[in-house]
Design a protein around this nucleic acid. Sequence first.
DNA 1: CTCTCTGCAAAACGTTTGCAATACT
DNA 2: AGTATTGCAAACGTTTTGCAGAGAG
Lengths: 134, 134
Amino acid sequence: MITIFVLKMNYSRQREAILNIMQSGLLDHPTADLVYAKLRKTFKKISLATVYRNLNHLAESNFILKIKTPNMPDRFDYRLEKHHHLVCKNCGKTIDVELRSLRLNAAALEQLTGFKIDANTISIAGTCNDCKTF
Amino acid sequence: MITIFVLKMNYSRQREAILNIMQSGLLDHPTADLVYAKLRKTFKKISLATVYRNLNHLAESNFILKIKTPNMPDRFDYRLEKHHHLVCKNCGKTIDVELRSLRLNAAALEQLTGFKIDANTISIAGTCNDCKTF
DNA sequence: CTCTCTGCAAAACGTTTGCAATACT
DNA sequence: AGTATTGCAAACGTTTTGCAGAGAG
């Protein structure tokens, strides 16, 4: 299946910088706020709204992934290959996980539930190492 | 393993009504707002804060389950047996899913990732039947 | 010239909190 | 009497939106 994304997009220095930040922290899954903090070093007047708009725009155009987390700032991911996420419900820490090795049968799950499970959007909530003790 | 919950709790008519609502819609996974709407029929002056406080309190005391959903109102569940959830990332619709039958090896997942996966808190994001087309 | 993009401020959204009054035990 | 709970309003944290000006094609 091939999907073509037609979203009009001009060049912008801010967006380029955002993509660079995403690229150079492939496993970081940063929040918009963290990207914002990094950008401010270069763009003294950039606004958080711009960061959100760009991250959303890039996600809609499938340049990056938006990982929605429960009651925590969303996270963004530059990695586009099929993979999934484990999100700490306490601190939001997000790590990649390959469900292939875990034998989760997504097809069976879809058939059973009627839900469509998007390639990149399986996210499992748990409690990460740092938050186990509380 | 036995866990004892010692939370001081007085009787309150509001809380009783909330528990009744939860009990009588076992598969509904209602949001706080929906519970609030139902309560208003009986309690004309009840406030949303009270609903949230009670639902949270009941969840902390393990009378009900709090299901945090990505960028959507949280949902609450009266069913306490070990089971998990599939949450539509578009409309928030939440359904039960027994991961046993899907061979997700939670133990392996925990070992691999260092995350602790709570018995009742595995939630997988997808797109439900009604939201598939858009 | 026409969009797109930006910064700013304000709004939106779901949820929590401070407070004084009330209910429970 | 002493806590737990309530309603209200205000605050919270995250994200989106309206707008007028700047930038890109």
